[in-house]
């Protein structure tokens, strides 16, 4: 009680109304970490929160403990954003991903500091942030190229023009890797949206801070509302909704946890959801990026059209 009083009195208000520190330290302004749904920063509808703690025992922040309803709201947002995002010019999607990288680059220090607060060493934190920026640029470049890698013109017998192209699977629910709270999340988010999908991400449970700060940079990157939605909360509580929802087309899960994988796959049968497991990927390596991550969240559409032979040209054209 005594101590608190002392601390409070370490601040006083000067004559001209400005705060002035008596001691060396200025009182820190704590950030409220809100979830990101449909381009808005919201509190969870449940009103619940949790306080992740770092190794030193410091409480990191009050973080939203999202509910099933938050997830459902996010799916509605993602579904309404899908048509617009998937039919945007690929070049434009690339430019928005590049813009994300630019915005992240400008806020490197903030992410490094946040990672450090979440028990990542300075060297590793710096490396993770730089890799994250580069990974966004990597996928920015793929936005208008993967289609050419994965498309075919099929030499069918008979007089038809026939081609196959990748198209986004739709709404993707993603449980971001628990390790690499920033790089991991971006490594699974970027291929999803580069390919025209919209997504709902669940941030690392123990290290959720960067995910929300990332949402703020995404928000300033011309990303349309609803394309990326970021939730925080308990993995064990939310995971089954991620796999059960009937308007989700695919789910990505990154932990090497056989029991959970089994549960997810069983749930996926409800609407034949595409269930994608990245349980053995080292996100900090070259292995962590590839156009095949984009292709995993694509459907292949084949289109046929007759070719009519008109006239008498025969072979002479």
């Amino acid at each position: 009680m005594e101590k608190t009083t002392v601390k409070k009195s370490s601040l006083s208000v000067s004559e001209n109304g400005l705060e002035r520190k008596k001691g060396k330290k200025r009182l820190e302004v704590l950030k409220t970490y809100k979830i990101y749904i449909n381009g808005q920063f919201l509190r969870t509808e449940s009103g619940r929160y949790y306080q992740p703690v770092n190794a030193a025992g410091e409480k990191l922040a009050n973080v939203c403990l999202c509910s099933r309803k938050d997830f459902r709201d996010a799916v509605v947002a993602a579904r309404s954003a899908f048509g617009g995002w998937s039919s945007r010019p690929a070049l434009n999607r690339g430019q928005i991903l590049y813009r994300m990288a630019e915005m992240l680059e400008g806020r490197k220090a903030q992410f490094v500091e946040e990672l450090q607060r979440q028990d990542v060493s300075k060297t590793k934190a710096e490396k993770e942030v730089l890799l994250t920026v580069d990974r966004l640029i990597y996928y920015a470049g793929w936005c208008d190229k993967y289609q050419q890698i994965f498309s075919t013109v099929n030499p069918v017998s008979g007089s038809y023009f026939n081609f196959s192209v990748p198209e986004p699977t739709g709404v993707v629910s993603i449980i971001a890797p628990q390790d690499y709270p920033l790089l991991g999340l971006v490594s699974v988010m970027a291929p999803a949206i580069a390919g025209g999908n919209t997504c709902i991400l669940l941030a690392s449970e123990k290290k959720p801070l960067c995910a929300i700060t990332l949402a703020e940079t995404l928000h300033a990157s011309d990303l349309p509302p609803g394309v990326v939605n970021i939730l925080t909360g308990k993995l064990s509580e939310l995971i089954k909704w991620f796999a059960e929802h009937m308007d989700v087309n695919a789910t990505v899960f990154c932990e090497n946890d056989v029991e959970t994988q089994k549960m997810l796959k069983e749930k996926s049968a409800l609407n034949v959801k595409r269930m994608i497991f990245y349980d053995n990927i080292k996100w900090e390596t070259e292995q962590g990026q590839s156009p095949y991550f984009i292709f995993d969240l694509q459907e292949t559409k084949t289109t046929w059209h007759p070719i009519e032979n008109i006239g008498f040209g025969g072979g002479a054209y």
Binding site: S157, N162, S164, K301, T302, T303, W304, H305, P306
Partner: peptide
Amino acid sequence: VVWANTYNKFDPTSP
């Protein structure tokens, strides 16, 4: 698979 101005066409080369 989408057929335009045709229907129920199949081919080994066509996914």
